[in-house]
């Protein structure tokens, strides 16, 4: 996070992390499609021909002044395919908060877990403490059959007290709630350090 006092802007970086095809890009697409063009940038997607994220997606939201500061939220997704591990670490640089998008389908449990542990390792390698990084778990694809309960996913990731939301990103269910939750966590953490 950084505040540009000359321009009175507060910049936050939020990264959507998670296994391949979990729905990270879909979250950003929905946010982009539903927000007033006056408060958002274009969405940039560096992707393969098959619409899979190759490097990152990026979208910025900018709110009106809050207590004299103009908050700007820089939203990024990482490429989920295992292959792009070094790219994921690059995108985490300067992160203030993470939305972990888990795929709720039972057969994706192991991939969620692997992605989650890799994320923690990447954070540590970048010098962050994963324990104190603001984090929200989004259990996506709640519309599909053969999904696991949210508490099972939560437990399998070894989480304790991390906010957890259910979503159906293709229909926008839970997408804005997730975003609000992570933003509030990031700001609350900054204030704790007061």
């Amino acid at each position: 996070m950084f505040i540009n006092w000359r321009l009175r802007e507060l910049n936050l970086k939020i990264v959507y992390y998670g296994p391949a095809l979990g729905g990270k890009t879909t979250n950003l697409q929905y946010i982009h499609s539903k927000t007033d063009p006056r408060i958002r940038s274009e969405m940039v997607s560096l992707k393969t021909r098959g619409d899979r994220t190759l490097y990152f997606d990026f979208l910025q939201l900018e709110l009106g002044r809050v207590a004299g500061l103009k908050p700007r939220f820089n939203l990024y997704t990482v490429p989920g395919q295992t292959y792009y591990t070094s790219t994921r670490k690059l995108v985490l640089q300067g992160v203030d908060g993470i939305v972990f998008v888990a795929d709720s389908q039972a057969h994706r449990l192991e991939e969620n877990r692997e992605s989650f542990w890799e994320m923690r390792r990447n954070l540590r390698e970048l010098g962050y403490d994963p324990e104190s990084m603001p984090l929200v778990l989004q259990c996506n694809k709640r519309d599909l059959p053969n999904i696991l309960s949210v508490s099972t996913i939560h437990e399998h990731l070894g989480l304790n007290g991390v906010p957890c939301l259910e979503s159906i990103a293709i229909r926008g269910v839970g997408v804005f709630e997730t975003l609000k939750t992570i933003i509030n966590l990031v700001v609350a953490k900054a204030q704790q350090q007061l």
């Binding site: 996070m1 809050v66 207590a67 500061l69 509030n184 700001v187 900054a190 204030q191």
Partner: peptide, 12 residues
């Protein structure tokens, strides 16, 4: 980080 007022979170 340490320069956000306490009311900022609520206002945001």
């Amino acid at each position: 980080n340490a320069t956000l007022g306490t009311d900022f979170g609520t206002a945001l």
